[in-house]
Every structure is written in structure tokens, then in C-alpha cells.
């Protein structure tokens, strides 16, 4: 199952500079584990030690923010595209 994942500039140090990578998994959490096996350290930039998505990143499956679709439990299907963006926020 191939899922295309767009990686933001700030995380491309983990993907050898690649803007787009491919992974597999039937949930977002499984996909991130798969990607972390290929690109060490990526998971730590996306998921907290407590196992939740970092608030510093926004993750979309197709066009939906996964915060509204079950976060790491969001189901994935072959051909879905995942986009990771840095949240733009501050105080």
C-alpha cells in the first residue's frame, strides 16, 4: 500500500532533502512508524513522547486535518496523500 507523504522544509533533513516520500500503513500512526523505519528520527518530530501529534505540525490526509478525523488513528487507503506542514502560530 503506497501513500505519498509531503514533507515540509524543516523535516527534510530527515529525508535526505526529499520533498515527497512514500510509506505504507493502514492508519496514520502505522504510516509514521513505517516512515520512521526508513527515515530515522522523523517520528520524534511528529509525535510526542506521550504518543500524540505535536502541536507544531499540521497533518492532512487528502485535504482533511487529521485533528478532526481521529489523529493518529485516522484510517488510510492506498492512493491517499498525506501532507505535513509546520503550524504557523505563536504568541
Amino acid at each position: 500500500m503506497a501513500i505519498e507523504v509531503r514533507i515540509p522544509t524543516i523535516l527534510r533533513s530527515h529525508t535526505g532533502g526529499a520533498k515527497t516520500v512514500e510509506g505504507s500503513g493502514d492508519t496514520l500512526g502505522a504510516l509514521i512508524d513505517d516512515l520512521d523505519g526508513q527515515y530515522g528520527g522523523l517520528k520524534g518530530r511528529l509525535v510526542t513522547d506521550e504518543g500524540a501529534l505535536h502541536r507544531f505540525v499540521n497533518v492532512y490526509v487528502n485535504d482533511e486535518d487529521v485533528r478532526f478525523t481521529g489523529a493518529l488513528d485516522t484510517a488510510l487507503e492506498d492512493g491517499d496523500s498525506v501532507t505535513v506542514l509546520p503550524a504557523v502560530a505563536g504568541g
Binding site: N58, Y60, D65, L85, V88, A89, G90, G91
Partner: peptide, 19 residues
């Protein structure tokens, strides 16, 4: 999206559209 005097954030849909 926060409409706050002490915090700001781009709405997540706006952020995706922008990028």
C-alpha cells in the same frame, strides 16, 4: 484564527490552501 491579543495561528485549512 485565534483572534487573540496574545496568540496567533493560521487556520489549518487556510494553511493548507496557502502552501
Amino acid at each position: 484564527a485565534a483572534r487573540s491579543p496574545t496568540f496567533y495561528e493560521f487556520d489549518s485549512a487556510d494553511l493548507l490552501a496557502l502552501y
